[in-house]
């Protein structure tokens, strides 16, 4: 049976979809059968990040409404074997989803894929509720900024209230991903450090993604940055994917690029 993993954040623009695209790609590269689903109805985005926007015929709402079969709507990524994608619908009313239909779809997917990654919409409205309802576990993405951390805290507080697993007396496993960390700023005391964020959110960490310009060009091209073996953010995502899959992986040293000159400068600033 596949595992349903919801990626959520509360605040928009912190890198949820980028995280989904990269973890899904990395898992597929590890030989897993993975499907990424965009639950942001009306504001489709994951397709562009995966570079699959031109291959969409049907979407997740079409499947739930019975306008097509599941296999007609699911797109397989030709560049990454084992990676599949189910797009959000772009035009339809976002309130069209309902719990019974989502349950039916996700349970069907669980029988086919090893991992089902659900890209939650920003906010804490019905779209968010639907995306966490059947989650086995949740990855909460935040950046080291006050607004993102505050919204992450709010979301963490409601995940269990909206989850079926919690209703049955179990807990949804929750982890934090800290995205776009700038080690130099942390060093200077001008950005919340990893420990600050973890202490505030009181959740375990599953990965830190350093701020990386390569993500921008990867997004421009529609090729997730994990495909770039040289990128540090890609390496961070690869490690997160492995941890989600149950492997123990060392955390990256984010300061390793620091030169002696910089060290000396820091000393006398």
């Amino acid at each position: 049976m596949g595992e349903i993993i919801t990626i959520t954040s509360g605040k928009g623009g912190v890198g949820k979809s980028t995280t989904v695209a990269n973890i899904a790609t990395a898992m597929a590269q590890e030989g897993k059968k993975v499907i990424a689903i965009d639950f942001d109805i009306g504001l489709r985005n994951l397709d562009m990040l995966l570079g699959l926007e031109n291959r969409i015929v049907y979407d997740v709402v079409d499947v739930m409404e019975g306008n097509c079969n599941l296999s007609q709507a699911v797109i397989n990524d030709k560049n990454t074997k084992g990676l599949f994608f189910l797009p959000a619908s772009q035009t339809k009313d976002k309130n069209i989803l309902n719990v019974e239909k989502i349950e039916k779809l996700l349970n069907e997917l669980k029988g086919i894929y090893d991992y089902i990654l659900v890209d939650s919409p920003a906010g804490i409205e019905s779209g968010f509720e639907h995306s966490v309802y059947l989650a086995d576990r949740a990855l909460v993405v935040t950046t080291p900024e006050v607004s993102a951390v505050r919204d992450a805290d709010r979301v963490i507080g409601i995940i269990d209230a909206k989850s079926l697993k919690a209703k049955n007396g179990e807990e949804v496993e929750k982890h934090v991903i800290i995205n776009r960390l700038k080690p130099e700023l942390v060093e200077r005391g001008d950005m919340l450090a990893i420990d600050d964020v973890l202490q505030i959110l009181s959740l375990p960490l599953i990965g830190v993604v350093p701020d990386d310009e390569k993500v921008v060009s990867a997004t421009n091209r529609g090729e997730p940055v994990v495909l770039n073996k040289e990128s540090r953010s890609g390496e961070a995502y690869r490690r997160i994917a492995k941890r989600v899959m149950g492997e123990e992986v060392e955390f990256m040293d984010l300061n390793e690029k620091k030169s002696l000159g910089k060290l000396l400068k820091g000393l006398f600033r």
Binding site: G189, D196, I200
Partner: peptide, 17 residues
Amino acid sequence: GSASVARDRLMVTLAKE
């Protein structure tokens, strides 16, 4: 650094929320 200000502000706000 401004990070410690951010941390303190978050702690207070989140405690209330």
